[in-house]
Design a protein around this nucleic acid. Structure first.
Lengths: 347, 347
DNA sequence: CGTGGCTTTGCAATCGATTGCACAATATGG
DNA sequence: CCATATTGTGCAATCGATTGCAAAGCCACG
């Protein structure tokens, strides 16, 4: 593998000169610069980044810690963060912390090993697992940004969606359509999804609806049972709010299997605006917490921190506003609805 | 940031001894080893990997080049490769080459800059864009494995699915169900998807079906037009084969909007076994080219090449066998079917 | 011709680890 | 008690770049 000194020899100059010429330093004369660049190019020289990184104490790499990428929620986030990172001139080291986020601590170690210049840590349903590790990093002023809400977060930058406002939007939309009997599918494993429900309740209350059925469902199986249950109710609901799209999708499937028509007999709303929702029929009404904004905010914050590690005036929190995406799965309730009593239509 | 020499000083030994103690070398006495490890741990010492990498000429990182991760096909692949890499003790640097795979060459440069020890290059519909770069790398014996078929590939290891066999399986399944009027949605942008169609044709021919309708559709819009077209046919098909699940899903949506029932009036089969297929109603019958196997093969090949860069007996190709996943979207054709003539059922 | 200023180049230190080799210390055998 | 293993430790070179500082070369001006 050809190295700097080889080029220096070929060009008959010192290594410093070659290094400066390739870095396009103004301290090298134009002709010599051209010559050296030519020689280097012809020889197929590529700088050894590892050596360079050691010297300049930076890898121009950011570490992205994500629980998993198989879950339909994360890929877009990864994509957008990767794009933003690339745009900012950084490489991306991808760490999967596992569904249980076991490996979070291990992933954070990357920054202490100088492998990466900064870290974007994405938390999920389990909240922050590597709290100790993160606390320690925060205290040394290492550039980290936390993506997703966590309770009592260590003093690092944070960006997260306004889940409560999102839930509220859904409640308003559904109640304005005229629904009064509404069921919520959702557990509250961490703050984000909890807030969705809180916001939703607030919206219901404003519309004068006090009582609602809340079914704590987090898995497909729980959704299935929940749907079965509510179809047997004496006075079944006319609308369902599922706290995330993947559950909403599953709810739709179960309803169809029970020959319940959406949105004619039941309206369904989700949350997250996954691509999935556009493949369903009817297309899913949902809430978008702009991932573009989220990703960009996160990378921007991080880049800023990495560029000037000294100037640091406390952790900043950025809140991403929600947007209601009205598609086809919610409509006015039909007063004549009689779920579960009709024959299954011959579709 | 605390470094090796600091520990050496604290422990009153030389840097070499510390280095060896931490590497658990048998040449250091047990007590001293314990002592040093203790001191290092207490001081919160973490080795500077950049320095280490420079010295040992390896980063224990593999580069994964993927067109994008937003497309539902890639995330699982990334996940599995990341898992396999981690298991093998490697970090992952993720490069997104872009839908157009423009950045492929740039991504491959990472290996020449010693940033990564090896590369898994995933090609997509555009085939291999960075042919020159890859050829050059292959000639220097750099560890690269190509994931996905490409024509006239440079001499590097390759792993790809047996698309033809997969297409054949679908054809057999559909014809065995009794379908004779079959339409294929698919273009042939690169070898893989082309082979799906070739295998499919072969299956049809074996069943004695010569004529089939082939609609070259690659986008959702093309699918929509295609569906419209075939619903207007005098003698519409009873089965549809879409060359990938995302198109099959879109086809299902269009059919539902036209009040065509699946699989009663039309059967639909896809290819790829995306998660998406299980969210649809009916769930999609499709073909699986085990991503687990693909990912593992790729990483195994790569690790082998990285471990012994010298012993190299020509490029190996590994073929991943397909598996038919029978779900709900294909059934026997109903002779009384009269697509497009009925009223839309009151779903 | 000497001096000062400016541009261009090179020397040598540095980043933080690993490792071949030499040597010291201790054990073993004759 | 000496010769020879054996074991444990340290010195110093090395990986391949970057960069502060010194100095060489050149020009112009007094």
């Amino acid at each position: 593998m050809i190295k700097l000194s080889d080029i220096a020899q070929k060009a008959g100059v010192s290594e410093s000169t070659v290094s400066r010429a390739l870095a396009n330093s103004p301290r090298i004369s134009a002709e010599k610069k051209k010559l050296i660049q030519r020689i280097a190019f012809d020889a197929g020289y590529k700088v050894n980044q590892v050596a360079r990184n050691l010297r300049v104490r930076s890898t121009r790499t950011i570490g992205l810690v994500v629980p998993e990428v198989a879950n339909p929620y994360f890929p877009r986030l990864v994509q957008l963060i990767a794009d933003a990172a690339r745009e900012a001139g950084y490489h991306l080291q991808l760490h999967l912390s596992g569904v249980a986020q076991d490996a979070e601590t291990e992933c954070l170690a990357a920054i202490r090993e100088q492998r990466v210049d900064g870290v974007v840590l994405v938390t999920s349903e389990r909240g922050l697992v590597a709290r100790d590790a993160l606390n320690e990093m925060a205290s040394t002023g290492a550039p980290v940004v936390l993506l997703g809400w966590v309770n009592d977060a260590p003093p690092v930058d944070m960006v997260y969606g306004d889940d409560a406002a999102g839930g509220y939007l859904v409640a308003r939309h559904i109640t304005e359509l005229g629904h009064r009997r509404i069921v919520v599918f959702g557990a509250a494993p961490h703050r984000g999804t909890f807030d969705r429900l809180v916001g939703f309740q607030r919206g219901l209350k404003e519309a004068g609806i006090d009582t609602d059925v809340h079914i704590p469902a987090r898995t497909n199986e729980e959704i299935r049972l929940g749907i079965e249950y509510l179809l047997r109710m004496a006075n079944p609901p006319t609308a369902i709010f599922a706290y995330k799209d993947s559950l909403a999708a599953m709810a739709c499937r179960c309803l169809r299997q029970a020959c319940v028509s959406i949105p004619d007999q039941i309206s369904v709303a989700g949350f997250d605006n996954l691509d999935l929702g556009t493949y369903l029929c009817p297309q899913l009404t949902t809430v978008d917490l702009s991932m573009e904004q989220t990703a960009r905010s996160a990378v921007d914050s991080l880049v800023e921190r990495m560029k000037s590690p000294t100037t640091w005036d406390g952790p900043k929190h950025r809140l991403i506003p929600p947007q209601l995406i009205v598609r086809e799965s919610c409509s006015h309730p039909r007063s004549t609805n009689s779920i579960g009593r009709t024959e299954c239509p011959p579709i």
